[in-house]
Amino acid sequence: MPVMQYIEAVRETLRSEMRRDPNVFIMGEDVGKRGGVFRATQGLIDEFGEERVIDTPLTESAIVGVGIGAALYGMRPVCEIQFADFIWPAMNQIISEAARFRYRSYGTWFVPMVIRAPYGGGVHGGLYHSQSVEAHFAHSPGLKIVAPSTPGDVAGLLRAAIRDDDPVLFFEHKGLYRAVKGEVPEGDYVIPIGKADVKRDGRDITVFSYGKALHFCLEAAQMVAAEGIDAMVVDLRSLRPLDEETILNAAARTGKVLIVHEDNAFMGIGAEVAALIAEKVLFELDAPILRLCGPEVPAMPYSPPLEKWYMLSPEKVAAKMRELAAF
């Protein structure tokens, strides 16, 4: 199995899907010659030409809205929003349009489209190059939302997203692009959207996370393991739909639940996971459900100490794990 970076998994999956299906094409800002500001689409224009790797005008609503139109006509656009922070101008097209076409037309019109967006902080990006935006979209039925944490998951889930007949938001943590390497199965590797993944089994506490924070959780699990705390770490991967079965089984397995994400807590993904567990397996629990999330400020500040204050870390997660285990 080849080993590649997270961002290479994005690129190679795009390449293989574009080879496989002539309806798949890419559009976004700087995705062509430059290969994207993160280089996720680097070289694709050489293979597929500027007709299928389209440098669009600098207009997010059009990137999504035109993508919707193309999808209605039978194409499979993969739209890149350069930074998730700049997705808001396209909010109306995503929520009012992409998410609703199928429902409002009783299934006769639908939008097989992927919107890729690098998100997340810890990269000296300040308020507008660090945001986690997933909770704003997760509230909307009609959308699917994916946030993988490993190159293998990127490949399997991006392939699933491109082949999906509904709009999928594909959030790539930019802090993982070159920081994480991993095995990527060759060939037609698809991970069904809606399946969580137990990244580490454990008996004492269950930790749910995704994205970069997931890696902090794995590191923290190592740290507390030395102290005799055996943490199970579950990667949600798919934020809408959530994998109810895996989540409930994992919660019941240890009876102690911690939810960790970089996005702030209020009305976030963790709140939904906690509510789900409370509704369905409350009596399996031995402790209150805990959350460790970003702070309740509008967005991530810039200076190194401020950014560090905002960001999670293995140490912060380990401390919370100890708190939960001791309950």
């Binding site: 035109v66 993508g67 139109g69 193309a70 209605l72 656009p77 109306n92 349009e97």
Partner: peptide
Amino acid sequence: SGSSPVATQVLHAVGVALA
């Protein structure tokens, strides 16, 4: 299929034309 927020359909038409 159209929605209520005005002018969103302009982009859909352009997308169909692109496709």
